[in-house]
């Protein structure tokens, strides 16, 4: 669907992007992760044809952006970081204008109505955009990106500046859109990328520093596993039993309140799975496990590691 090869961009002799290459298959939801100024928006702007690269090529569905920009732009729905809204227009007039601008050849009224229902802006359809809340403005921005049923959706930090409820709603919407579109989503919010995307590219200082699935990224960069247990019973006995399990490197106790069930954080070898052994040991000493969860290296840890190393 998307093929980016050796993409470089220089601003005043400073490398904003350096030899970036990746490809994206149909139906994939790709998270573009990186600190501010890493080159996420630059990459997206080049793919959408807003700016040109200094070097390298971008192909969308077989068409090259410099050779056939209009064909490429037809296949892309783009939501920039700041939605390009004409705030003096009503939602209806704006979407109608964008529909005409994109030269969409579907049933206009029906198509716009479908999109409005999908992104839930049908209740503000006749209102002037400047009077809408930030969340609604963002939805109108997504709606314009969806006009013409583009194969590829590019969303640049779609939840920035929204309140927690709006963030959850927009994420839900993106997940729904991911069922029908190929999506590139940029963000510097890790939980967002983790919850929405199935593949992640981490970019730092204009270079790709990681490209993998969320789970692979976490496991590849971790050198040890973590198990968090809540166990009822004598603290000293439990600690001893846990420490004696093969592969366990360290056990720490975390007790939030005096009468609460004690939490044990067990650090053990990356290549071992001690969960069933822990279960049988605790059963032997008659200490019931109330909860058990694996807490391996989080994406946040991976992100910090990747971006600080570079």
């Amino acid at each position: 669907m998307v093929e980016v090869k050796n993409l470089s961009k220089k601003y005043c002799n400073k490398d904003a992007l350096c030899d970036v290459s990746f490809s994206l298959n149909d139906g994939e939801v790709l998270g573009f992760l990186g600190p501010n100024g890493a080159g996420k928006s630059t990459t997206m702007n080049i793919i959408t044809g807003y700016i040109s690269s200094s070097k390298g090529t971008v192909k969308v569905d077989g068409d090259e952006i410099l050779e056939n920009p209009i064909a490429v732009k037809r296949k892309i729905g783009y939501l920039p970081e700041q939605p390009p809204l004409y705030v003096d227009m009503t939602v209806k007039a704006y979407l109608s204008f964008m529909y005409d601008l994109k030269k969409v050849k579907l049933n206009k009224k029906q198509h716009i109505e479908e999109i409005c229902k999908l992104v839930k802006i049908d209740n503000v359809y006749n209102r002037i955009i400047k009077h809408l809340s930030k969340g609604y403005k963002q939805r109108v921005g997504i709606a314009q990106a969806l006009l013409g049923k583009p194969k590829l959706l590019i969303l640049d930090e779609p939840t920035v500046g929204l309140d927690p409820n709006q963030i959850v709603e927009i994420r839900k919407l993106i997940k729904t859109l991911g069922e029908k579109h190929t999506i590139i989503l940029s963000s510097h919010i890790l939980s967002e990328v983790q919850s929405v995307c199935n593949r992640i590219i981490v970019i730092n200082n204009g270079k790709i520093v990681a490209d993998d699935t969320t789970s692979n990224l976490s496991s590849d960069f971790s050198t040890e596993n973590r198990l968090i247990l809540s166990i009822e019973g004598d603290e000293y006995t439990i600690l001893n039993e846990l420490k004696n399990i093969a592969g366990v490197k360290n056990v720490t106790v975390n007790k939030s309140e005096p009468d609460a069930v004690v939490n044990y954080i067990v650090i053990y070898d990356k290549n071992k799975d001690i969960r069933s052994t822990v279960f049988s040991k605790m059963a032997e000493i008659n200490c019931p496990i109330v909860s058990m969860s694996n807490n391996n290296m989080t994406l946040e840890d991976v992100f910090r590691k990747l971006t600080s190393e570079n």
Partner: peptide, 11 residues
Amino acid sequence: QKTDQALLTAP
């Protein structure tokens, strides 16, 4: 208003 992005990324 950054609406030029809509025009410049339109086909």
